[in-house]
Design a protein around this nucleic acid. Structure first.
Lengths: 331, 331
DNA sequence: AAATAGATTAACAACGTTGTAATTTAAAAT
DNA sequence: ATTTTAAATTACAACGTTGTTAATCTATTT
C-alpha cells in the first residue's frame, strides 16, 4: 500500500540505504543523487513510516497530550499555542481524551517522547500509580501532582488585585466568585481575597464576598445585580473569572452604572481578550501566552533529557487598562 | 528502556515467540505457560510496542481524529461519545488540532487505521488535494467533501419545527438565528424556515425572521427582547441554537412572559440538555448520541474494509416536551 | 517397545527504517 | 600508469513484534 524507501530506491536505481540518507539530507550522499531521490519521493507521494522509524530510533518526535476534559475552553487556547510552538521544533502533538491512566498507557505504547497532562482539578497524578517510561509534565494544581508541574499562583493574583485597588484608594472592595469548597482552583482565589482583606473566611465579609452558583456569564450577572442593587457603598469589584466579568458588565450596564466612573472592576483572567466590551478590562493573572511558553520550554528541556525543576509556579501580572479609576477621581 | 517480550521470555525460560502468542492469548500455547507468562508480564510492567506491532501487522488499532477547531463545544461532546464507542472495540482515538492537510499527513505516517475529519464549515476536503492511503470519513457539510461523509439535515429540522407549530395551530411563527451568508451551516437553518414559510428570503418576512449577530446566549437574549417588546402577535418562536434559546428564555422571563402559555418555543439542538431551565425544551435536530452511533458504525465498517455509502445525511427528529402549547390552549 | 498422531514450543523471516561497517568509485598524488 | 586517499554508495544488522514453518515433546495405538 504505502510507498517505502525501497520503492524509491528501485525507481532511482540506488540502494535503499542511500535513499534513507538522501531523505534525511545526510552529507554522505551527493547533491545530484539527493535531488533526484527527493524528486522521486515527491512524485510517489512518499510518507515516512513513523512506526519503523521510531522502532529503530526509539524516538517518535511526538508529544502526547492528556486532555480528559475536552469541553473546557481555556485549555484549548493553551493547547493550540503549545501545539504551534512545538511544531516549530518539528514535534507533533497528539491528544487523548481518555482517562489519565489509560491515556498515559497509550502514549507509552506509542513511544511518544514526552507526555503533557492537563489536570482537571480532580484527578491526582501520583507516580506511585502510574507506569511510564516516558517523562511526564503536569499542568494543573501543584497539590495534585508528584511529577514536574507547572501551576499558576491564583491566590497571589487576587491579592495583587486587592492591593492595587487599595493603592488607588478603594476601601469597599467586593469579590464575586465561586466561594464553595468544591473547586480547589476557585478556592485559591477566594483565599487570596480573604488574606488580602485580613479575614479568615467568607462569613467575616458577608457584604463583600459574593458567592456565585457557577462560573457562567449568567452567574456573574446575577451576583452583580443583587450586590449592586443592595449595597451601594462598594466602589470596586474583583471578578473571579472572565465569564463572570462579562455578566457583571451586563449588570452594571443595565443598572446604568458606568465603569469605571461609578464602579471599578478588575478581572481575574489569563485568556486574551475575546469580546470587545465597552471598557477595556484591567486584569490580573498569568497570560496564556506566558503559560504556553513556559510549558513549551519545560517540554523541550525534558526532551533534551534534562531534569527540570519539579514545581514551577507562575507569578501573575497586573494588567492595567480602563476599568479601574482611583477612588473619588470623578467627584 | 521499555520491557520487551524478550525480557519476559528470559524470565519465563521460554522463547520470545511463545511469549508473543501467550500475550495474544493464542490457543497454540498451554494454559499453565500462558498464565505464568501473563504474570511475569504484569510484574515487569510490560507495555506492547505499537510501533513494532503495527509495523508487522500494518494495523495500529488507532483512529486519527482531525479536529482543527478545538474551541467549539458541540463537537467535543460528540468526540467523547465516539471515543467511548470505539474504546469498546479496543480502538484508540488520537486527536490532532493541526490543519487538515498536515494532520492527515501525520496520521498517515502513524499508520492509523482510519481518519475522522471534523469539518469546520470552512475547510473543504477534496480528494484531489489530499494524499492518503488511510481511509477518511468526514463529518460536516456534505458540500465540503468528496469523501464519505456524514451530515445532518438542518434545513429539514427547521422545517419540521415550523410544521409542528403549524399543526398545533400557530400562524405567527418567528425564527431567531444567524441569517447572514457567512456560515453555510446556519444558512441551511434559515433556508429551512423560509421554505416552510413559502418565501424566498428574509426580506419577505421582516417581522418573523429575526437576525442575530452571533450565536451566543446574549445574541438570543437581545433578539428576543426586541422582537417580543415590539411584535406581540407572534405566538411561537423557533430558535436556531441551544445557546440562543437560553438567551431567549432569559428574555421571556424578564418580560414576564410564560412559556408555553404566552409563547411557544422550539429549539434547534442536537446536544443533550445541559442546564435545567424552567421549562423542558421541545427541540428538533439529530441527537448527538445518534450522530455518534452513526459515525461509529461508518468507522467500523470502513475498518473492516467495506466501502461505505458516500454521503449519509441524518434526518432530524422532533422531541416534544413542555415548551410548546397549541394555539389558543390557555384562552 | 516402536510408531504415530497431536499438542506444545522454538526458530526464523518479515515489516520499514536507521546507523555503522564494508565496498566500490572517483580523484589526487606519486 | 600505479598507488594512495577521499568520496560516494551499498550491505547488513538492529529495533520489537507477529505469522509461518520446523522441531520437539507427550500421549496413544499397535
Amino acid at each position: 500500500m504505502g510507498v517505502t524507501i525501497k520503492d524509491i530506491a528501485k525507481h532511482a536505481g540506488v540502494s535503499y540505504s542511500t535513499v534513507s540518507k538522501a531523505l534525511r539530507d545526510s552529507p554522505l550522499v551527493k547533491k545530484p543523487t539527493k535531488t533526484k531521490i527527493m524528486k522521486i519521493a515527491q512524485e510517489l507521494g512518499y510518507q515516512p513510516n513513523v512506526a519503523a522509524r521510531s522502532l529503530v530510533q526509539k524516538k517518535s518526535f511526538t508529544i502526547g497530550v492528556v486532555w480528559p476534559s475536552v469541553e473546557r475552553v481555556a485549555p484549548s487556547i493553551l493547547i493550540t499555542k503549545i501545539n504551534d510552538l512545538l511544531e516549530r521544533k518539528s514535534y507533533t502533538t497528539l491528544l487523548s481524551i481518555n482517562k489519565v491512566e489509560s491515556a498515559i498507557a497509550t502514549f507509552n505504547r506509542f513511544q511518544v517522547d514526552a507526555i503533557l497532562v492537563f489536570g482537571d482539578n480532580k484527578t491526582v497524578l501520583s507516580d506511585t500509580l502510574i507506569q511510564t517510561t516516558v517523562p511526564i509534565l503536569y499542568y494543573g494544581l501543584k497539590e495534585n501532582s508528584t511529577y514536574p508541574t507547572i501551576d499558576v499562583n491564583r491566590r497571589k493574583a487576587i491579592k495583587q488585585a486587592v492591593h492595587y485597588l487599595q493603592e488607588i484608594g478603594h476601601k469597599e472592595i467586593a469579590f464575586i466568585g465561586d466561594l464553595s469548597d468544591n473547586d480547589p482552583l476557585q478556592k485559591e482565589k477566594a483565599i487570596g481575597f480573604f488574606e488580602a482583606m485580613n479575614v479568615k473566611q467568607a462569613s467575616e465579609l458577608p457584604e463583600l464576598a459574593i458567592p456565585t452558583n457557577g462560573l457562567e456569564v449568567h452567574d456573574g450577572y446575577h451576583a452583580a445585580k443583587t450586590l449592586l442593587s443592595n449595597n451601594t457603598s462598594v466602589t470596586a469589584l474583583i471578578s473571579g473569572s472572565y465569564d463572570l466579568t462579562r455578566g457583571i458588565l451586563r449588570a452594571t450596564s443595565e443598572l446604568a452604572l458606568h465603569v469605571p466612573k461609578d464602579i471599578s472592576i478588575i478581572s481575574y483572567d489569563n485568556i486574551p481578550q475575546a469580546d470587545n466590551l465597552e471598557v477595556t478590562l484591567s486584569t490580573v493573572g498569568v497570560p496564556v501566552s506566558r503559560i504556553a511558553k513556559q510549558i513549551n520550554k519545560a517540554l523541550l528541556s525534558i526532551l533534551e533529557g534534562h531534569d527540570i525543576q519539579d514545581h514551577i509556579i507562575l507569578d501573575p501580572e497586573l494588567n492595567i487598562a480602563n476599568s479601574c479609576a482611583p477612588f473619588g477621581w470623578y467627584d
